[in-house]
């Protein structure tokens, strides 16, 4: 029990350090909000609005069942932000510590190595939440963003997806700690993961070969349920079925991730690459 409490404190210390370090890089803080705005939200909104007829997004309505363009885009930003948190905040930041040389002293402490992923998941989620609040505020002020109260119903789906993304982050952390050049790998897979989850457009528009990939991702269902509850889009399947699949995928992703991470940790200790690269 005392051990578990100590481990929890270690996790919170990691989370705190994650957030504090981020706030010490001012420009990085600003770009956390600016990058999703300029790379996704604003151009997507203006691009989408260019198809509007008489102020209504008729095309979008026939694609997804609602003409709430801002809602569609900003909610896509929620899930892609969550995915980016897992890829960059939880996984890649461990690799950055490996490169910087601070992973080794961390690995020398009695805290379990899993705690380093969990701590980042907590810290990353705090930053994710703050970013989303800022983005929603901007959306409501400048882009006429509005939701149904039903958005609250989607909270379990979002939390499940977050949990499953921690599982995915374990796998990613394992890979980036072993790969030589991890940056492009994370950048590219993060983007594809996000697109295949339907954050930018409905997954039904994906070329046929990518559809099974989309349906295997927990975030696809979270995205679908979130938009359905918040802005009334059509869902891919019955919402109950989607919840069941989401729970099942989370139940697989989490333990699988832990196992892969433990293997990678072992390989690093055999090869002696905790401090290398």
């Amino acid at each position: 029990m005392g051990e578990l409490l100590a481990e929890l404190r270690a996790g919170l210390a990691i989370a705190r350090k994650h957030v504090v370090t981020m706030t010490r890089y001012r420009v990085a803080m600003i770009s956390m909000i600016f990058i999703p705005l300029y790379q996704g939200v604003i151009p997507a909104f203006l691009f989408g609005a260019a198809f509007a007829v008489g102020g209504r997004s008729l095309g979008l309505a026939s694609s997804i069942g609602t003409d709430n363009l801002a809602g569609f885009i900003f909610l896509g930003g929620v899930v892609s932000g969550m995915i980016a948190t897992a890829f960059w905040g939880m996984a890649m930041s461990l690799r950055n510590e490996q490169d910087a040389g601070t992973l080794e002293p961390s690995w020398l402490t009695p805290s379990t190595h899993e705690t380093f992923v969990i701590g980042r998941a907590i810290g990353g989620s705090v930053l994710f939440l703050l970013t989303q609040i800022a983005l929603f505020a901007i959306g409501m002020l400048f882009f006429g963003l509005r939701f149904d109260i039903g958005i609250l119903r989607a909270i379990p789906a979002v939390l499940l997806a977050l949990l499953s993304m921690v599982g995915v982050a374990y796998v990613l952390a394992a890979l980036v700690l072993l790969l030589k050049e991890a940056n492009f790998f994370i950048d590219a897979t993060n983007y594809l993961f996000s697109i295949a989850s339907g954050t930018a457009f409905p997954v039904t528009l994906l070329p046929g070969v990518f559809q099974p990939v989309a349906l295997a991702l927990p975030t696809t269902y979270a995205m679908d349920l979130l938009r359905h509850d918040a802005i009334g889009t059509r869902t891919l399947f019955d919402p109950v079925v989607e919840y069941v699949v989401l729970i099942a995928l989370t139940a697989i992703a989490y333990p699988l991730g832990r196992w892969v991470f433990a293997r990678a940790d072992h390989v690093m200790r055999v090869r002696g690459t905790v401090a290398q690269y």
């Binding site: 705190r16 890089y25 402490t109």
Partner: peptide, 16 residues
């Protein structure tokens, strides 16, 4: 980017 004390506070938690 952390102070000496912040570094040690962090590692104190990791050292339980």
């Amino acid at each position: 980017k952390l102070t000496a004390r912040e570094n040690l506070e962090y590692f104190a938690a990791l050292y339980h």
